[in-house]
Design a protein around this nucleic acid. Structure first.
Lengths: 148, 148
DNA sequence: GTTATTGCAAACAATTTGCACCCAC
DNA sequence: GTGGGTGCAAATTGTTTGCAATAAC
């Protein structure tokens, strides 16, 4: 997995990700990795500020950087915000469109498909999202009463 | 599954969706169904205004209504907006995180899984999203030059 | 007449940007 | 010293809401 031959050339510089992250960027990435669930930029910022001094814009800018480097995964929250999580997590959800409640699924049936796509297209694939949407039993009742 | 006994009561009233849509709601739904690809609320509004008189707020409100009735499908655009499409479309994409370019995939390997989940959980599942993210070959080059 | 729908403009919220300052190399 | 990284506040963008006018039944 690791290039063993010539790692001498200055600081390590793997073919993929331009290497080092700044201090604050590392802070953001660490903070993100501590989250059990996908989290919005705003909430992550509030979380980080408990321990560090960091600006909201930096959090946004860093998440953008990490995104392009394939280090974070993004999905959309029910109220339209973006939710970020470690790209390591291969988690999938069953989400209620009305109340936002999410159930975690354990199956991930698309790993093989992803590898196959990777071979077929000239794309560097970082991750995939798979999510099911509908109404939970409670909201289904509510909706038929008050279609709001 | 369906209450068969007394379906006589007034206009048809299937167990699921509270029935009729208003005129404008119908306009939105029709307009949406004419789109070949997922579209944002703003663009849909611009599209509709070419032929009808309709307010932006109505478009948003209608899309929300249609969402709860399981008639539209939502996914997040690369710049953070919501993209809407007919729930009929079982399309999946391979999307570049940098330029937003999307390739349409033909395979959908999760139909069976969805039916299985539907049996397992007390959720009414309307649709699923499955999307792959990464960098297209061009953006991959660009990124290694200018990590911006 | 009563109730839901609509349009407009104002309000909101998430995100991005301009700019001056700071830090690492 | 130079270039990227950072914080703050202002600007932008997508979306929601209040309310009076309108349409549906």
């Amino acid at each position: 997995m690791q290039r063993n031959s010539v790692a001498k050339k200055s600081h390590s510089c793997p073919p993929q990700a331009p290497p080092r992250l700044s201090r604050q960027q590392q802070t953001v990435l660490n903070g993100l990795n501590q989250q059990p669930h996908p989290i919005s930029a705003q909430r992550l910022h509030r979380f980080l500020k408990q321990q560090h001094s960091i600006g909201l814009a930096t959090v946004y800018r860093t998440l953008e950087t990490l995104k392009l480097r394939g280090l974070v995964q993004i999905r959309a929250g029910v109220q339209g915000e973006s939710l970020y999580s470690s790209v390591e997590q291969d988690r999938h959800y069953l989400t209620c469109l009305r109340c936002g409640q999410s159930l975690v699924l354990d199956a991930c049936p698309v790993g093989e498909l992803q590898r196959q796509l990777q071979r077929t297209f000239p794309f560097k694939i970082y991750y995939h999202t798979l999510e099911f949407f509908g109404l939970c039993s409670l909201c289904k009742l509510q909706t038929s009463k008050n279609p709001s």
